[in-house]
């Protein structure tokens, strides 16, 4: 147990260092969302009195973009590691498969946190909408949403055959789900089949939970969203355990 924890810490730390060594990855997943947020925040909140979308939705959009970036990066890295035989090499050691996968989730969580921290800093300067009514509750919601979506990354990484397809397939799926998540227009306005998809999508429930947490309404009113996100997590982990391929 103790050794597993030490291994997890070491592997996570090594993976963070490796990630930071690749400039494109850092720019893409950390800097771009922050810069976009800063630009949009400044541009959209500068002259408006009470802009409806901008004031509270922009932070939620920013959070989701960061999390989606992390999921895509997780999917791609797992695909690359599998293709390069790295996962197989690690599996041929006493390292538990669970530790290997957990390390990657941890790396993404750390990365998401750093990006969000930068967002907060940027928000202070460039974003003039209202701050979150309950910051800790919002942070909790961010973690739940992240874990739930990262588990989707494992399923994606199991399904896509090669690293080359991981990024495009993941992007199409996640950005499509984002577009119907209720962030840009109400889910109720969607045509029949799309509405069903939206209601099953963890992103829709993520938007609900984040929105309510941001507004300070707490989680109590959003137990459907919370349950849906946790169910998604459990299902994805179960599916990934069955179909995840190491080579």
């Amino acid at each position: 147990m103790l050794r597993s924890a030490a291994q997890l810490a070491k592997l996570t730390w090594v993976e963070i260092k490796i990630f930071v060594r690749e400039p494109m990855g850092v720019i893409g997943t950390v800097l771009v969302p922050v810069i976009l947020f800063a630009l949009l925040g400044r541009w959209m909140t500068r002259d408006l009195e009470a802009p409806s979308f901008v004031s509270s939705e922009l932070p939620i959009l920013a959070v989701l973009l960061v999390v989606i970036g992390a999921v895509l990066s997780l999917t791609t890295i797992l695909a690359i590691y599998r293709e390069g035989g790295i996962l197989k090499r690690l599996k041929a050691t006493p390292l538990s498969p669970l530790v290997i996968l957990s390390a990657h989730v941890l790396v993404k969580l750390v990365l998401t946190s750093v990006t969000l921290l930068l967002l907060v800093v940027a928000g202070r300067r460039f974003y003039t909408g209202p701050p979150p009514a309950a910051p800790w509750s919002f942070l909790g919601a961010v973690i739940v949403v992240s874990l739930s979506l990262l588990s989707l990354g494992f399923v994606l990484a199991s399904v896509v055959r090669t690293a080359r397809f991981a990024q495009p397939v993941g992007s199409i799926l996640l950005y499509s789900l984002l577009s119907i998540s209720g962030l840009f227009f109400p889910v109720a306005a969607l045509p029949g089949a799309w509405k069903t998809v939206a209601l099953l999508s963890p992103l829709t429930h993520g938007v609900d939970l984040l929105r309510s947490a941001w507004a300070g309404a707490g989680w109590a009113g959003e137990w459907v969203a919370l349950l849906a996100l946790l169910a998604n997590l459990v299902i994805c982990v179960a599916v990934a355990r069955r179909v995840f391929r190491w080579e």
């Binding site: 030490a6 291994q7 592997l11 090594v14 260092k17 490796i18 390069g84 035989g85 790295i86 197989k88």
Partner: peptide
């Protein structure tokens, strides 16, 4: 001790880091 055919490591892992990581795997 195992060496696999055509195995790879993380592209950007340094030599000492790989050895150090492997060291945590064994008592």
């Amino acid at each position: 001790g195992v060496q696999l055919q055509e195995a790879q490591l993380q592209k950007r892992i340094r030599v000492w880091e790989a050895v150090d990581l492997w060291k945590t795997l064994f008592p």
